[in-house]
């Protein structure tokens, strides 16, 4: 079974993070992720959305699609301050006030990448889909 890869879902990032988590959870399940892998993605996207609300200009959007091997979730902000250098390779110290979200994403997702251009930053989270 091979599902269409072109279909994209878009959600705005608002203060209603619970709704975003619910929509993403459903989408991830439909895409073929299960159990803990869905949780990992939902936790990660929630952290990314918090960063957009806090540091990313306060608004943005989440897009999700299936590229044939992975479920890709892109989180775009309107501040464009996030750069690839911000990706975490070490856990923030307990007293740190920032950086936990990016660390969590790096630990829970299969791939994390940042693309910064023309006043926007796009964070891409990828989860490998189970083979059919």
């Amino acid at each position: 079974m091979f599902v269409s890869t072109d279909w994209r879902e878009h959600w705005p990032i608002t203060a209603d993070l619970a709704l975003l988590r619910e929509q993403l959870h459903q989408h991830a399940a439909d895409a073929g992720l299960t159990g803990e892998r869905i949780d990992d993605l939902v936790i990660s996207v929630n952290e990314a959305a918090i960063n957009v609300l806090e540091h990313g200009g306060g608004s943005g959007s989440v897009s999700a699609w299936n590229d044939g091997t992975h479920l890709v979730v892109e989180v775009a902000d309107t501040a464009g301050l996030l750069t690839p250098q911000d990706l975490r390779h070490q856990r923030p110290s307990p007293g740190a006030t920032r950086g936990f979200g990016l660390w969590v994403m790096s630990q829970l997702c299969d791939e994390v990448a940042v693309d910064q251009e023309s006043g926007r930053s796009r964070l891409q989270l990828r989860m490998r889909l189970p083979a059919h």
Partner: peptide
């Protein structure tokens, strides 16, 4: 639960 334990562990804040 497993979901909460995971975020406690990944952040390293479980030690507190």
């Amino acid at each position: 639960g497993p979901r909460l334990l995971k975020i406690f562990q990944v952040t390293g804040l479980v030690q507190f």
